[in-house]
């Protein structure tokens, strides 16, 4: 394993310390590294709280700040945070208007946030994101994973919270943005969990994983390496087929951590051509490595259908370590 680290057991705390030092103008660190919070809270605003396993940086701590989250709880690598983290974070950032949890749909995350909500003794609602079309949906299963679309939910709901929307309205808006959002991913390599010390799965030099998640878990299918155009065609077809919508959209190409910008923009180009065929027009764009899987090579694409409210929320000023505009 080749990583810029010291002792594997301190990777998380050392990285968080660096993160907080580098962005001390925006964020502060909670006791025992349990959470990262906005330096200046806005009294009367609903507090937005997210979190999840680490290894997806900049998600979630990178989105703490004006116009997005009030706090983020980092779990161990790919492991949901524990309820004490969310309880402490909610205590720190709830200024009386209640707390909205934004949780990616993994059973670990859902259960730990559920326990935190039961134990916290305050007004809490939960938005669960499940944008990954690679997973077959059914009433009887875990359902779809929450992946890169979570960023869009956090951004749009964050803007509305900043504008003073109340807890119930934010919960509804979050669910609505989630329903307007679909993602799909492809991996060219596995990632390596520091504590495990070797790649999570083996992949041949001419193979790739289609429909991969963000935890180095295998995807739905191992297939032969294909061209960017062919990959884009399959991903966009899956997304558009599931969305069943045409019109203006936010189009987000997300790198998994080991993918250079050159390839992400090439994928943007390839996928935009496919979107056009399905009647989807990107009027807002985001390209970069925002929801990652450690050092995995590959990318996901996310489409959010836009209406005026969602567009306004996306465009609203934001000032966080990883996403910033208008401020």
């Amino acid at each position: 394993m080749k990583k810029l680290i010291n002792d594997v057991s301190n990777v998380l705390t050392e990285s968080l310390d660096g993160f907080v030092a580098a962005h001390g103008d925006i964020i502060t660190l909670g006791a025992e590294h349990k959470f990262v919070q906005r330096r200046v809270l806005k009294p009367g605003k609903v507090a937005l709280l997210s979190g999840g396993g680490s290894g997806h940086e900049p998600l979630h701590a990178g989105f703490v700040g004006h116009g997005m989250l009030d706090a983020a709880c980092p779990g161990q690598v790919f492991t949901s945070p524990t309820p004490d983290q969310m309880i402490a974070a909610a205590e720190a950032v709830d200024t009386g208007a209640g707390v909205l949890f934004i949780v990616k749909n993994y059973e670990g995350d859902v259960m730990n946030f559920d326990m935190a909500r039961e134990m916290a003794g305050r007004d809490i609602e939960t938005v669960i994101t499940d944008d990954d079309v690679a997973v077959e949906n059914s009433l009887y299963t875990t359902g779809r994973r929450g992946v890169a679309g979570t960023l869009v939910v956090e951004k749009v709901v964050g803007a509305a919270a900043e504008q003073g929307a109340d807890l119930r309205a934010l919960k509804q808006l979050g669910d609505r943005v989630n329903r307007a959002t679909r993602s799909m991913g492809v991996a060219l390599t596995s990632c390596t969990v520091p504590a495990a010390g070797k790649p999570t799965f083996d992949m041949g030099p001419t193979e790739m994983e289609m429909g991969v998640g963000i935890h180095g878990e295998p995807g739905r299918r191992r297939v032969a390496l294909r061209s960017a155009d062919e990959i884009a065609e399959e991903m966009v077809a899956a997304i558009a087929g599931d969305l069943k919508a045409k019109g203006n959209a936010l189009f987000f190409v997300n790198g998994f951590g080991g993918t250079p910008a050159m390839e992400l923009y090439l994928m943007y180009n390839a996928a935009a051509a496919q979107l056009a065929k399905h009647g989807i027009t990107p009027v807002r764009s985001l390209v970069g490595s925002y929801v990652t899987s450690l050092d995995m090579a590959g990318c996901s694409i996310t489409v959010t259908m836009l209406d005026d409210e969602i567009t306004k929320g996306w465009d609203a000023p934001v000032h966080t370590p990883a996403l910033r505009w208008g401020l």
């Binding site: 396993g53 949901s80 524990t82 004490d84 993994y106 059973e107 730990n112 326990m115």
Partner: peptide
């Protein structure tokens, strides 16, 4: 619950 995290913790 407070130390494991993930699905197995709860």
């Amino acid at each position: 619950v407070m130390k494991v995290g993930g699905a197995s913790g709860p």
